[in-house]
Amino acid sequence: MFKVDLNADVGESYGDFIVGEDDRLIPIITSANIACGLHAGDYKIMDHTVKLCKKYGVKIGAHIGFNDIFGFGRRSFPIDSNELEMLISYQLGALMGVCKINDAEINHVKLHGALYNIVANDLNLSRTLILTVRRFDASIKIYGLSRSETEKAAFLLDHPFYAEVFSDRAYQSDGQLVSRNKNNALINDAEIIVKRMIHLIKTGQISAENGDMITLKADTICIHGDQIGAAVKADKLKSALVESGIEVKSE
């Protein structure tokens, strides 16, 4: 039996500024990555999003990024292990507090944007990520890029890891994501998204931008909640996965 988790980046609104369509998207997905207030989100949005996840039985994750609300966490900054440890601790602690008053638990941590990519390519920073999360709770999973240094660090440290693939992003032949600065980085056609994800889950392979077939482990598929029509795309993807015999669930 094939199975996969379906996650989305949510809780990215700020005050009265609304990003995405979380009320429609969260009932569809199986795990949620909630922004923790630095790249997006705020304390009220976090509370609302945790409540939505509880209502629909969706696993809760901390979506941790750079302190870069102007750049939505997608700008790169120099970072060392100590600063990464503090960034993780500050944001994970904030979401844990919100979860505590809502009688909810954190299932996973997923880094966001530029921070995600920097750590995915650095074994030492990946170790810092895992060891910091472990100080909070050793059962909290790491969601990270398939074939990354983060996956390698999780294996070396024997920490629970979900290899993540992206439904709406193009891949390079080395397994890295195509830069958002390129015109072909994002895939918006829902039919293409569905076909490539079903093929990946069933074969372990996906076509890179140059046409090469690359192998990726896929424990979880990401939907970007800030994209237009994210809920519709997620619903089509989930329905198609189920119809093709793939169970959509989070352990």
Score class of each variant (00 low, 15 high):
102 N>I: 12
46 M>D: 04
174 D>E: 04
29 I>N: 03
147 R>G: 01
138 A>G: 08
2 F>E: 09
214 I>L: 06
228 I>K: 15
49 T>V: 06
38 L>K: 12
181 N>S: 15
3 K>M: 08
26 I>M: 05
33 N>Q: 02
117 N>V: 10
208 A>W: 00
142 I>R: 08
101 I>P: 00
45 I>D: 03
80 D>E: 13
4 V>W: 02
208 A>F: 01
69 I>P: 01
244 S>T: 09
129 L>W: 03
156 L>Q: 14
195 K>N: 15
100 K>P: 01
216 L>E: 05
205 Q>M: 14
196 R>N: 06
41 G>D: 07
187 I>R: 11
159 H>P: 04
242 V>E: 15
35 A>S: 12
103 D>M: 10
7 N>F: 02
54 K>D: 00
36 C>G: 05
177 L>W: 02
173 S>N: 12
16 D>E: 14
21 E>N: 15
230 A>R: 07
242 V>C: 03
30 T>K: 02
76 S>W: 03
153 A>R: 03
25 L>H: 05
137 D>I: 10
201 I>D: 03
221 I>M: 09
195 K>S: 15
7 N>S: 10
244 S>W: 09
179 S>D: 15
20 G>K: 06
180 R>N: 11
237 L>T: 06
163 A>T: 08
85 E>W: 04
104 A>H: 11
190 A>V: 12
149 E>Y: 05
37 G>M: 04
23 D>E: 15
34 I>W: 02
50 V>L: 03
56 Y>K: 00
13 S>Q: 11
100 K>Y: 13
136 F>K: 07
18 I>L: 13
231 A>P: 09
55 K>Y: 02
177 L>F: 03
220 T>I: 07
222 C>A: 10
77 F>K: 13
55 K>I: 00
8 A>N: 07
62 A>K: 02
32 A>K: 03
111 L>P: 07
215 T>V: 10
246 I>A: 04
61 G>M: 05
32 A>I: 03
107 N>H: 15
213 M>T: 10
138 A>H: 13
110 K>H: 07
96 M>N: 13
122 D>E: 09
53 C>T: 01
11 G>K: 08
71 G>H: 09
4 V>M: 05
220 T>V: 13
75 R>F: 12
47 D>G: 00
242 V>L: 12
28 I>E: 01
136 F>W: 11
74 R>A: 13
198 I>H: 08
164 E>M: 08
89 S>N: 05
97 G>Q: 04
185 A>Y: 10
77 F>V: 10
198 I>C: 12
212 D>E: 14
241 L>G: 04
48 H>M: 09
246 I>M: 07
37 G>I: 04
101 I>M: 13
170 A>I: 00
84 L>W: 05
199 H>A: 11
8 A>V: 06
164 E>G: 10
